[in-house]
Amino acid sequence: MKTIIALYRRANTGKSTTLNYLIGLLKEQKVDFKEKREIVYYGGKKIAVTTPGDNADEIKKNIKFFEKEDCDILVTATRSKGETTNIIYKYHKEINAELKWIEKNLSVTLQDLINQAQAKDIQATIDTL
């Protein structure tokens, strides 16, 4: 069964940064903080990690990337409500995928530490699949 993990929150809260940390963890490499759509092989799974997600166009591109690459898991950034979440919800129903919503943690003073810790939490979620 395909799985979608949606990291959600309003814009500029560190979703992309957290997902870049996740890519670094899963690939055991240095973190590159650019917006990207990347394939990661981890735990016998092919995972699409997509950092853009603040608008409907980006979410549609993320889904196309996931489909084109025939991945097992899509981990994507998304907004808290509106078009982006509606598209993800509708898509998971269409393909009969498991959908896990993860709210982006926030901190004013320790944001980078929070981003790293949340990336490890998402990795742990992937480990259970």
Score class of each variant (00 low, 15 high):
residue 40 V to Q: 05
residue 94 E to Y: 12
residue 61 K to C: 03
residue 44 G to N: 08
residue 30 K to M: 03
residue 96 N to Y: 09
residue 20 N to V: 04
residue 109 T to S: 15
residue 19 L to P: 01
residue 35 E to G: 02
residue 101 W to L: 15
residue 120 K to F: 10
residue 60 K to M: 07
residue 46 K to Q: 06
residue 117 A to P: 00
residue 26 L to S: 06
residue 121 D to M: 08
residue 79 R to N: 11
residue 73 I to H: 07
residue 74 L to W: 08
residue 89 Y to T: 12
residue 84 T to M: 13
residue 62 N to H: 08
residue 65 F to C: 03
residue 17 T to R: 06
residue 75 V to K: 08
residue 89 Y to C: 04
residue 29 Q to P: 08
residue 50 T to S: 14
residue 109 T to R: 14
residue 89 Y to L: 11
residue 76 T to W: 11
residue 53 G to Y: 07
residue 121 D to H: 06
residue 84 T to V: 12
residue 88 I to C: 11
residue 31 V to P: 00
residue 21 Y to E: 14
residue 78 T to S: 15
residue 20 N to Q: 06
residue 110 L to R: 14
residue 34 K to N: 10
residue 118 Q to Y: 05
residue 56 A to K: 10
residue 62 N to M: 09
residue 39 I to R: 08
residue 17 T to L: 02
residue 50 T to L: 05
residue 17 T to H: 02
residue 86 N to A: 15
residue 91 Y to N: 05
residue 112 D to R: 15
residue 27 K to W: 09
residue 28 E to F: 12
residue 43 G to T: 12
residue 24 G to F: 09
residue 35 E to W: 05
residue 120 K to Q: 14
residue 105 N to A: 11
residue 90 K to D: 14
residue 20 N to A: 04
residue 54 D to T: 14
residue 18 T to D: 05
residue 77 A to C: 05
residue 94 E to K: 15
residue 104 K to N: 13
residue 83 E to Q: 13
residue 47 I to L: 07
residue 103 E to N: 12
residue 33 F to W: 00
residue 84 T to S: 13
residue 80 S to N: 13
residue 38 E to K: 07
residue 92 H to R: 07
